[in-house]
Amino acid sequence: MAPAVTPEALVRDHTIYSCVMGSRAFGLATDGSDTDRRGVFLAPAPLYWRMDKPPTHVQGPADEQFSWELERFLELALRANPNVLECLHSPLVERLDHTGRELLSLRGAFLSREAHRTFVRYAVGQRKKLEADVRRHGAPRWKHAMHLLRLLACCRDLLRSGELVIDVGADRERLLEVKRGEVAWPRVEAWMTRLAEEADAAAPGSPLPREPDRARVEDFLVRTRRASALQTYTHHEVAQGVVGGGLVGQQ
């Protein structure tokens, strides 16, 4: 049995894909912007043969770093989780191996009209928090308001085109004005409402499929897990003579 692996080692040694997210990926970075890193690691197969399973996600080890285990990441992406879907489309890739490249080749398999429900549901929750801030403090958290506008525009454009593009492009300056508190809250609210209505209008005729391609994603997961298990046999049991009788040949 392989020794235990720390969460930090899983991220350090088994990451298949990592990227920069947040303002830097969205085209909204300024001099004071943080560098938010997101990644996907593949826990080695032997870790699942224990009673204690590997973590589904790891915070750190660096500041502003968060990683998902592959299966959890795929599960969330199939549910059209906005943060996870956008992670697959970052223009700022920092680490990528052959499994990560196949993951990125599956980006289209996760996109469906389900994104309308999940993006808008997330936006509604965030908008309620902003409205509560206005009631309590007289103003929202402007940075959060900026990112909510960005998310709603991203959702609308995804439903219209069938493609997920996370860079804000020509909207950069308008959105940064919101972040700086230079746009009155009623105007920001009106902008949010318009974007949500445009997303609703785009949903029925969207070129996106009704559901994600779960079978294609599951095939990728099964093949990846099998390869990890076979690699374990190759590196450990063959050296010990455990599979000398043809166990690997029977796979």
Rank of each mutant, 00 (worst) to 15 (best):
S23M: 11
L28C: 06
D13P: 02
E8P: 11
G22C: 02
L28H: 03
I16T: 07
L10H: 09
P3N: 13
R12G: 04
S33H: 11
G27M: 08
A4K: 07
C19V: 08
E8M: 11
D31G: 15
G27R: 08
T15G: 06
T6F: 08
D13V: 06
V11W: 00
E8Y: 05
C19W: 02
C19Q: 02
S33A: 14
T15C: 00
S18I: 13
V11P: 12
H14W: 09
Y17K: 09
R12S: 10
S23C: 15
E8D: 05
T35Q: 07
V11N: 03
L10Y: 11
T35V: 15
F26V: 11
A9W: 10
I16R: 11
R24Q: 10
L28M: 06
T30K: 00
S18R: 12
I16M: 07
V20S: 01
D13L: 13
G32R: 15
D36I: 13
S18T: 12
P7C: 06
D31K: 08
R12W: 00
I16C: 09
T15N: 04
C19M: 05
D34N: 13
I16D: 09
T15Y: 03
R24L: 06
D36P: 14
P3C: 07
G32E: 06
R24Y: 12
D13G: 08
A25M: 09
I16K: 11
V11R: 12
V5W: 00
E8I: 10
T6Y: 12
V5F: 10
D31A: 15
A4P: 11
D36M: 08
S18L: 02
Y17W: 00
A29T: 09
T15S: 06
T15A: 02
L10A: 07
T30M: 04
G22H: 00
T30Q: 04
D13A: 02
Y17H: 00
H14K: 00
D36R: 07
D13M: 10
